[in-house]
Design a protein around this nucleic acid. Structure first.
Lengths: 226, 226
DNA sequence: GCCGCGGATGAGAGGTCTCTCATCGCCCGG
DNA sequence: CCGGGCGATGAGAGACCTCTCATCCGCGGC
């Protein structure tokens, strides 16, 4: 899909973002300080930058400023601390295209990445996917409504995001940890069985056969009626 | 924007849909039975059809079938009774592009109309608006999150839809009745003051100045900082 | 056949959302 | 200046959502 540069010094977050974007089919490069990030970004080998503000050597603002000074128009999504209005406003004024307040759910970052990539190349690819469909289930991403075999039903916000994640990876096994990360966010109690519970809810609504259990591994959204 | 044909025998619903679509800048034509609807649809003078299933003379299925038989590829959105799986499935198999279960909120029909029009002409217009911005407020339609002066805040589902409606009509006065129709749906107690209450909620979140009261008329979303 | 562990599930706490109702306050006409 | 009516708002009922916890179930190893 696209080549994405991640400029982030915290290894845990960098890995989280990189892993998720790779699962979506993107190529990722990680730079752990601002100097290297800037060099990489200027190299022309990337389509989009995910840029942390709090960085060693050269902070995110500085990277962004020099990048724009040197004429780069590459889309930049900035990671800011939640509730820091100053950060966010400065970043956008400094030429960022979008921002994510930390901590964030991966699904939200992904939505922003998709949006920026789409705006960049309005010709390439589908126009950003307005709906997902698999195994008789249809999700309308715009109106956030779901349909099973043509029958409308209600999903709560959490259920919808979980279903979205399953359907983006239909056929593949997703671990509890992956689902927790993607749907609940980076900072969620790993000991919780909330994934199990929500899988139960989706099964009740979509039909038990739509989500298969893979013992010791996780869950898999079933596409074929077999 | 576009020329839309509404085939609907119930005057109340036809007027509701026509009025709303006109407010969005579309041109509307209403046909009150299937025969006339088919003739109009075949005339080539419309970009999209909103088609009721329960129609006198010639029902919606028949209209759809003949339309497709005669080679028309015009997008058709079908209005079906909620929970009627048969209706919905038959309609989609009969060549409908989308459907709306009745009763519906206008905002949802609008989203579907936009989607179908966009798919029809991927070049024309913006790519369906991913965000709305006015008076310091920004709504991300994809992730359903809101920002005021760069500061993230939470909106409930109802609040979001109300805000969306206001911002689509920023600067214009909207009556309580219009807002009830668009946000709460066709079948809502007109005596309720729920609009007042939700305007209060939005003011609390966006700042009191963002929504002005127009006495005896309704409310207006304020765009200029004046 | 039995046991252990991973997964499923019912109950329920606590929070949020949605809406109603009644009261309060203020604008405007007279 | 007063009264009437429109709009604002606090309180609160009820539904729903989210998550935890404890228990139950059943697969698979032995």
């Amino acid at each position: 899909m696209a080549r994405i540069l991640i400029v982030e010094d915290e290894a845990r977050i960098a890995a989280f973002v990189a892993k998720g974007l790779r699962a979506e089919g993107h190529t990722t490069t990680v730079a752990t300080d601002g100097r290297r990030g800037l060099d990489e970004a200027m190299s022309g080998g990337h389509d989009l930058v995910v840029l942390d503000i709090g960085l060693p050597v050269l902070d995110g603002y500085a990277v962004l400023e020099r990048l724009r000074d040197q004429g780069s128009k590459i889309p930049v999504i900035v990671l800011t601390a939640r509730d820091s209005v100053t950060d966010t406003v400065s970043a956008l004024e400094g030429g960022a295209d979008d921002y994510m307040p930390k901590p964030f759910r991966f699904a939200e970052l992904l939505a922003r990445v998709r949006l920026r990539l789409r705006q960049q190349s309005p010709d390439a690819g589908a126009q950003g996917q307005e709906a997902l469909e698999a195994g008789g289930v249809r999700l309308d991403l715009r109106t956030r409504r779901a349909t099973v075999d043509g029958k409308e039903l209600d999903l709560s916000a959490r259920e919808f995001t979980l279903a979205e994640t399953f359907m983006l990876n239909a056929g593949n096994v997703l671990s509890r940890e992956q689902l927790l990360d993607h749907v609940w966010g980076l900072d969620f109690d790993p000991g919780s069985n909330v994934v199990d519970v929500y899988v139960g809810y989706l099964r009740k609504k979509f039909g038990a056969h739509t989500i298969a259990t893979v013992r010791g591994m996780g869950y898999r959204f079933v596409t074929s009626p077999a």
